[in-house]
Nucleic acid binder design. Sequence first.
DNA 1: CCTTGCATGTAATGGGTTACATGATTTA
DNA 2: TAAATCATGTAACCCATTACATGCAAGG
Lengths: 183, 183
Amino acid sequence: MSLRHAVLGLIVELDGASGYDLMKLFEISLANVWTATQSQVYGELAKLTADGLIEVAAEGPRGRKEYRATDAGRDELRRWLVEEQPRPARRDGVLLKVFFLGQLEPERARAYLRDSAATMGERRDGLAALQQEVTWGDDNLSLYGRLTLEYGRRFFAMRKEWAEWAEAELARHAAPPEDADRA
Amino acid sequence: MSLRHAVLGLIVELDGASGYDLMKLFEISLANVWTATQSQVYGELAKLTADGLIEVAAEGPRGRKEYRATDAGRDELRRWLVEEQPRPARRDGVLLKVFFLGQLEPERARAYLRDSAATMGERRDGLAALQQEVTWGDDNLSLYGRLTLEYGRRFFAMRKEWAEWAEAELARHAAPPEDADRA
DNA sequence: CCTTGCATGTAATGGGTTACATGATTTA
DNA sequence: TAAATCATGTAACCCATTACATGCAAGG
């Protein structure tokens, strides 16, 4: 149940936000951390309100509802941070394909890995560029946002290097071993 | 819909398997790639059969059903491998917590990262030990299984190093800057 | 006045997790 | 004969995705 804490966490950090505000945050700052659709956000706001963890603090134009965390909500966020230990995701579509790459011709398998390496390289460069562009403030979201961005950069870099290594491994296996052949 | 292709892929590679066989494979060889519960496996076998991608090739003791891929099934696996491009997961519970770590006292936040680094180090070492122990064959699952295992090792290594870096960053911010103080 | 953006909600469908439920075979 | 293992299946519930549906407000 992490969506709940993502929504709650943003409301606490921003000290009040509407569903619409949250959607934008999910699209931008949480994009590489936790995704959510519009209908999930509004649904979760309703549930959090029903459970007394947030409340409507103000209503604005166009039916805008500004939510703020209650004391119970802040307690719950803290409890989640301290007590609950997340288990890393155990599902990866890219790796799943690699697992079955033996079903393709070796050349196609290698092409898949080359392709993957290129994509990962682009994403790494994209995040690296972001790191250069953004001017970071002294607030919490800046500091911790910077940490997660660096994580993303390292993640893509790792994947790129791994894909290149894997491609080379396949090449090594595809080619007849030449070592013993000649001095 | 990747579970479908995970099940189908295993049946193709093994050239026949029961639901029970598949469960064990999900627990062991696919553990770091794609997880599935027992009820998912049996449910998916029923759907794949209904769609004509696999069929019951033999029945054994205790109601055991050995499934084998049909031609349509092999075609579908290939199509999935070649045509469909997976998008990397965009959800990570560990990172989500880091994003909100500003809600804790700095010392607690740093403890969380130190803890995380230790856990990741253990998991990295566990996979490294596995790599040493296992004697690899020349078959496809060995070759490609070795690639995904190495991915896992690099993944945990990256996370460990990142957590250590992040912890140091927090320390840097928590401590008053001493640089300008003295020569 | 028309377009863009702000703003919220619901319904249908599918996938995933947990728990329940049952029974046959092998091995100690 | 008792325990472990093999073996399959169903039901309830929750979470996520996609699509549908509506309407106000501000700016050009």
